[in-house]
Amino acid sequence: MKIYNKIFKNPWTYRTGAVLLATFNILLFYTTGRMWRVTNGIVSIGAFILEKIGLEPSKWYYFTTYRNIDIKTSESFLANPYILLNLAIILGALISVLLASEFKWKKIKSKKQLGFALLGGVMMGYGTRLSFGCNIGGYFSAIPSFSLHGWVFAFFMLVGAWVGSKILVRYLL
C-alpha cells in the first residue's frame, strides 16, 4: 500500500516528470521518426469537422502548399496519428487521476471565467498557426531539434505570459 501511494497518490516531483517526458519524446522520435506535437492533431480534427459540414479545407493553401500535417495526400484527416496521441494523453490523465481517487467534475464558476477561457483558447490556437507549433511542437520539441524558431518562441512566450499575468491580476482576481 505504501508503494501504491508513493506512485499513484502522492504527486511526483517536477524533476521526475521532466526526465520521463524527455524520455518519452525521445522514444517517440526513435520508434516513429516523429516528435511530440499537440496542435497538429487538433487542426486535423477541426479540418475533419469542416469537411463533414461541407467545406473543403483540404484545398486551403496551408494544406496544399505547406503540408505540415502528418498525413499522406490521399488519406482522410482522421488518419493523423497525432489525434490518437492527444486522445491518449486525455485518457492517460484520467487513468492516473482515477487511480489516485481524485477525480471530480469541476464546473464552470462564472461567465467571466468562461469568457476568458474562450478568449485565451482562441488566442492560443491562432498563435500556433503563426509560429508553427504550440508549447510542445514549437518549444519542447523545437529547441532540441536545433531550430532557431524554438528559442524565439520561448522568449516571446515569456513576454506573452507577462502580458497575460497582467490581464489576469487586473481582471480575474
Binding site: 503563426l130 509560429s131 507549433g133 523545437a142 536545433f146 524554438g150 513576454v159 507577462w162
Partner: peptide, 25 residues
C-alpha cells in the same frame, strides 16, 4: 523529421498571442 520551421516576426507575434492566451485560459 524534426520541428524545424521558418523564424521571423510571425514567430514573435504567434508566441505572444500564445503566451498571453495560455495564462488567461
Amino acid at each position: 523529421m524534426g520541428q524545424v520551421h521558418p523564424v521571423g516576426i510571425h514567430t514573435a507575434i504567434g508566441a505572444i498571442l500564445f503566451g498571453a492566451g495560455m495564462v488567461i485560459a
